[in-house]
Computed example of a mutant assay.
Amino acid sequence: MDALIVAVLVFLGLFGGACAGMWGARRLKEHHLSKETQEAVKLGVGMVAAMASLILGLMTASVKGNFDSTAKDVQQYATYLITLDVALRHYGPDAVPIRAALGDYTRNAIAETWPDSGMPPKIGSADSEQRLSEVGHLIRALEPRTTDQTELRGEAIERYKSLAALRWVLIEESATQVPPVFIGVIIVWLTLIFLSFGLFAPINGVSLVVFLLCGVSLGGAIFLILEMSTPFDGIIIVAPDAMRKALLHIAG
């Protein structure tokens, strides 16, 4: 679900609920707005507000945890690329074509994951998988002539295996699915809360402006949560700096 659309729905629900409460309060009889009624409504709305806070907290913790984990895995992935390149560089001239293939793969992975043209990222594309598989094939095809080369070939194979495994981890982490039912429930609950606020709020410009700003703020909070659920797409993304540094090392 598009984060901006959801944020707009949240804002409309909250501000519309507050306005509906103000409009309804003027048409209710006085005993419906008594002190006792206000206290009863506050108790019920307080429970709903507590549950809404809990759900928002769970959503934030889930997407933020996945975002931080993805950022760490990207750094780890870049480290594996550099250490693999170091092993191949020490291997000697026979590994030069493999280093070139590794550089091509890294360059392609950066271009697909963090495109500059405004296109959506391609996480786990077949082209990227084929390029990485070719690197592994070339490493296994090496024919060591010394003990050092044998050890370096074994080290390169281990690094390649780590890269291949971590690549699939990043693919799985590329999006944290926020259940649509959570979003729907949150919108309904927050709308009810603001509806109750509007029932007992004075009808004036200050109240309208405050409800407007609160609606924008909560809509923005939902927007940020949904944006973080896609670490490689949108406004809030994992930085590609580590991968670019790895590419510079490989190309150097």
Rank of each mutant, 00 (worst) to 15 (best):
S196N: 07
S53P: 06
Q75G: 14
E143S: 15
S162C: 01
Y105Q: 08
V188A: 11
I203S: 05
E143I: 15
S162I: 01
F223V: 01
S117G: 06
V8G: 02
K29W: 12
A164Y: 12
G46N: 04
G118F: 03
M22G: 10
K122A: 15
A18R: 02
G24A: 13
A239N: 15
S34W: 07
E143Q: 15
C214R: 04
V63P: 01
E172K: 12
T37P: 00
A165P: 00
L163V: 09
V238K: 13
G57P: 09
Y77H: 15
I157G: 02
H90K: 14
L218E: 05
A20N: 01
S196I: 04
G215H: 08
F194L: 13
E39S: 06
G234I: 11
D94T: 14
L84Q: 14
E112K: 15
L12A: 13
I110N: 12
A221H: 08
A100T: 14
G24T: 09
G21F: 06
V6N: 00
A87F: 08
T230H: 14
L138N: 05
Q38A: 09
F211I: 04
V169K: 12
T146E: 07
L43Q: 11
V210C: 03
T147H: 08
Y91C: 09
Q177R: 10
P115T: 08
E39P: 00
L102E: 07
E134H: 15
Q130W: 05
G136W: 13
A49I: 04
A126T: 14
A52C: 01
G184Q: 03
G184W: 06
T37L: 04
L28A: 05
V6R: 00
P180Q: 07
E158C: 00
F197A: 09
V10S: 04
L12N: 01
I222K: 01
D127W: 05
L102C: 06
G17F: 11
R27H: 07
L170K: 03
E129Q: 14
F200Q: 03
G17Q: 10
A201T: 10
I110Y: 11
W23V: 06
F211M: 12
A111V: 03
S174G: 03
P180R: 04
W189H: 01
G17H: 10
L56A: 06
S128Q: 11
L247N: 03
H90E: 12
A246R: 04
P202Y: 05
A165S: 09
T113V: 13
D148M: 15
T191K: 06
T150W: 00
A18F: 11
L208W: 05
R153M: 15
I98T: 07
G220I: 05
E158A: 12
K42C: 00
M51R: 00
A49Y: 09
V185T: 07
L152K: 11
P144S: 12
Q177I: 12
L213Y: 04
A78V: 04
G198M: 07
Y105P: 06
N108E: 13
A246G: 03
E143Y: 08
G24N: 10
A164M: 10
F200S: 08
A40Q: 07
L195P: 02
E39N: 03
P231K: 12
A20E: 01
T150P: 00
I235E: 07
V48T: 09
K161V: 09
